[in-house]
Amino acid sequence: MHIVVCAKQIPDPETPPSAFKIDAANNKVIPAQGIAPVLSQFDGIAAEAALRIKEANAGSKVTVISMGAESAQAAIKQVLAMGADEGVLLNDPAFEDGDSHTTATVLAAAIKKLGDVDAVFCGRQAADWDMGQVGLLIAEDLGWPAAIIAKGVTTGGAGLQVTRVLENGFESLEAPLPAVVTVSNEFGEPRYPKLPQIMAAAKKTVTNWKIADLGLDAGAVGKAGSRLKLERLFIPEKGGKVELMEGDTPQAQAAALVARLKAEKIL
């Protein structure tokens, strides 16, 4: 069984609020100084789900692919250290500033190029923009069935047995292969890499594919292919105003407070 895990590197969600800055003119997040980007937590969980299936099915293979900057190598290495076999980085200026749709286009092209893929595991959503669409859109592009927000995935039956998290309970599904699954945090924590595997991962070479390797049209990806337009990016302003009620006695202050609340039509 060959599973592809899609992993995204994102700005650290634990960046202290005071260090989180945006470039309002260009609608972009300014990377916080000295705070390294991290693997999106849900993608780590997707990797854990894939690795458990790999361990339960001899002869299986896990490939991790990431679309992003050169720095996304670190995210790929992290999943390799957890136990994935191969890593592919999709890094091309043409891919930048796209939306969920163009991202899925690029990832699906890479999965097609890999060829013998039986399943694709994604995190339920990227922990930076929280769109939660890429997994479904990959399935759409590939023409595969998709099960999203899974809390359990095992092999069995026609292919995969998936337990989905619903608003008011759980749903058990059986999916034929190939299929796409997006994994939720209810699945559990990703494993801590063993040092021998960290060292083995450090020695592995990550394959680099550009737009030409995937045979994609530059107009279909990145900003050019994007159907979603970001209007304005801003940090919401929080504020408070204090007004002290005047009055010589507590009774007078209370009366002033009531009058004021009535004026605001709160009482």
Binding site: E14, P16, P17, A19
Partner: peptide, 16 residues
């Protein structure tokens, strides 16, 4: 993991 990623052990701190 926090030490590896962020250089300090205090996950979830809002302070700098």
């Amino acid at each position: 993991e926090n030490l590896e990623m962020r250089g300090h052990p205090w996950r979830g701190t809002a302070l700098e």
